[in-house]
């Protein structure tokens, strides 16, 4: 199979993720968009790893997954604590740091 198919799929996934981050207000959905973008990047790593026949790309993908798992823990904890204190998960309401 041609590598470009994987790349196109990754691009589509990334764009869907980015658009999700930009247009949705719900923090959890935004979070899912971020995960989608990370996995689009992972797919690209794997596709090129397969194409070149070495494991560096797969290694990078594992790194991303581990980091993403850790990030999910922290990010969800923040969202939960925000929800507890402010009774909302809308990103547009979290504007206390406005300049």
């Amino acid at each position: 199979m041609n590598v470009s198919v994987y790349l196109i799929l990754a691009s589509v996934l990334f764009v869907i993720g980015a658009v999700t981050v930009l247009v949705r207000r719900n923090s959890i959905v935004v979070f899912m968009g971020v995960e989608l973008m990370l996995n689009a990047a992972n797919l690209t790593f794997l596709a090129f790893s397969r194409m070149w026949g070495d494991f560096d790309g797969q290694l990078a993908a594992f790194f991303v997954m581990v980091v993403a798992a850790a990030e999910v823990v922290v990010g969800l904890a923040i969202i939960v604590s925000l929800f507890r204190t402010r009774r909302t998960v809308s990103v547009d309401d979290e504007n206390l740091l406005r300049g």
């Binding site: 930009l22 935004v30 406005r98 300049g99």
Partner: peptide, 17 residues
């Protein structure tokens, strides 16, 4: 420039993108 600092996380994300 201050108008960019509107406090909307999504607008920051758009800027980053």
């Amino acid at each position: 420039v201050a108008r960019v600092q509107n406090g909307y996380a999504r607008s920051y994300a758009a800027t980053m993108l």
